[in-house]
Design a protein around this nucleic acid. Sequence first.
DNA 1: CAAGTGATTAGC
DNA 2: CTAATCACTTGC
Length: 187
Amino acid sequence: MVARDLLGKLLVVPMPDGPRVSGIIVETEAYRGPQDRASHAYGGRRTKRTETMYSIGGTAYVYFVYGMYNQFNVVTNVRDIPHAVLIRALEPVEGIEIMRGRRHGQSDHNLTNGPGKLCIALDIDRQLDAADLAGDRVWLEEGRQVPRSKVATGPRIGIDYAEEWIEKPWRFWIRDNPFVSRHSSKK
DNA sequence: CAAGTGATTAGC
DNA sequence: CTAATCACTTGC
């Protein structure tokens, strides 16, 4: 499953003037398009916002919720099949000083341990929506090997309206990693 | 624990 | 056109 494979990868978003800001992906959630009530593309819904999800895998899908926060996703399937993986948390690797500046006085483990927070820390916004991950604005690199035994799964977060889909164990994170989001880290 | 926030969507 | 909703965070 792609969501699990993304764990351990390095997400890189360079500053316009050069310095890299990056982090290891430690938490993801899978959204499977039409069948998945929790997905924006449920029932084949295809609107201006969700259009990006129908792109070919390897495209970034960035959208805005709750009036203040962006969410960063990776589109994972072929064209016209709207599957995507939400990146929920990162472990900061490069550009930590820059992230601290953007997050204004938050402690280090609070820089990127949530989907909205990591977008602030990496300066991800809708200008990156539909960006090609093989391009030069944002991309993934091999990061760290994550043994299967370190991968934990569980129900997704923040989709209480999704009825029978709520309990699907489509959230993946690296067990015992201190940077998984607080709502999600089960002790 | 609850409110804030505004783009997006569905419903007239 | 207007109203309701939301893949979250932060501060009481």
